[in-house]
């Protein structure tokens, strides 16, 4: 049985349609990724799924219970980790956990030991009684996640939980997420890091402009790109001028640029690479490096939207 089912989710803020017909499902123990750039509609989708934000249309059920903003009991199935750190700075980690534990109705006799377990998992056992305003960014991030999994939800929703975290903390977070998945928790994970989606998620949805563009396992998604490769050029000088010149090459499928680099999606990189370098030389833009990347979720995104995941 699916833990989460949602369909036809729609949300507009005035004229802007932030989420436009999003729907998917997650099975128990499955980790599902929403991969998309800033403003794609990930947080808005999640807010409707968690019953925080009223949807304009669509339907969400978690473990068979319909979720709306007015749902009370059904929400106890959901753990929610907001994108921005959401903890009380003047309380300790333990007090933060105590408060939310009570709110989620964890029985008193169970709460104390459960808090100890969570503090252990997020590696804050020895700092649990310090006020959280004295924590480092990474420690706050870990507590942010800890509060979400305190009541052992059936569905845990994590909204970009690793943003602004050092590589070491990040790895610890990813590991505990993997562990939760193995224990049978259904996970909904949003990110704009391709690597995280590739590593964690059983299935990934590519979301952009409020719509899911494609969905599937990594392998299924990469197949969408076919034989295409991404050529990444390091650029000294005007990337824009180079892009303009390269657009004359018809075989190039899509092209994006950012500060100091240009990404080109092509079919048959080895055949086209000399011509590309030729054009670059004619424009007088210096090339500091060339890299040909095998298809990955990043190239899938580029292929589907004509944009880079990160700008």
């Amino acid at each position: 049985m699916n833990v989460l089912e949602c369909e036809g989710l729609l949300k507009a803020f005035d004229d802007l349609v932030a989420v436009d017909g999003v729907g998917f499902h997650i099975a128990a123990g499955e980790t599902y990724g929403l991969l998309g750039p800033n403003g794609a509609g990930k947080t808005t989708s999640i807010s409707m799924i968690a019953g925080i934000l009223e949807s304009d249309a669509g339907r969400v059920t978690v473990a068979g219970t319909e979720i709306t903003t007015r749902t009370t009991d059904g929400k106890a199935q959901i753990g929610y980790v907001p994108q921005d750190i959401a903890i009380y700075p003047d309380l300790s980690a333990r007090e933060n956990l105590q408060f939310f534990g009570k709110l989620y109705g964890i029985p008193k006799q169970r709460l104390g030991s459960r808090i100890d377990e969570v503090l252990e998992v997020i590696g804050l056992s020895d700092r649990g009684d310090d006020r959280t305003e004295e924590y480092s960014g990474g420690m706050k991030r870990r507590l942010n996640i800890g509060i979400g999994l305190l009541h052992e939800p059936t569905l845990l929703i994590l909204d970009e939980p690793t943003v602004g975290v050092d590589p070491q903390s990040r790895n610890a977070i990813l590991e505990s997420v993997e562990q939760l998945g193995r224990r049978g928790t259904a996970l909904l994970y949003t990110t704009h890091y391709m690597e995280e989606a590739e590593r964690l998620c059983d299935r990934v949805a590519i979301i952009d402009g409020g719509k899911i563009r494609a969905e599937g396992t990594r392998r299924q998604l990469v197949e969408l790109v076919g034989q295409r490769d991404t050529i990444s050029l390091g650029v000294v000088g005007s990337a824009a001028r180079l892009v303009e010149a390269l657009e004359t090459i018809e075989e190039i499928e899509s092209i994006t640029s950012s500060e100091g680099s240009v990404e080109i999606l092509v079919e048959g990189a080895s055949r086209l690479l000399p011509r590309i370098l030729d054009v670059a030389q004619q424009t007088g833009v210096g090339i500091s490096g060339v890299e040909v990347v095998e298809p990955n979720l990043e190239s899938v995104f580029l292929h589907l939207t004509g944009k880079a995941l990160r700008d």
Binding site: G51, Y88, P89
Partner: peptide, 15 residues
Amino acid sequence: WYGTLLRLLAAPINR
């Protein structure tokens, strides 16, 4: 401001 309102809204309680 702290973002904790989101957690309150997500919690299994009446608004």
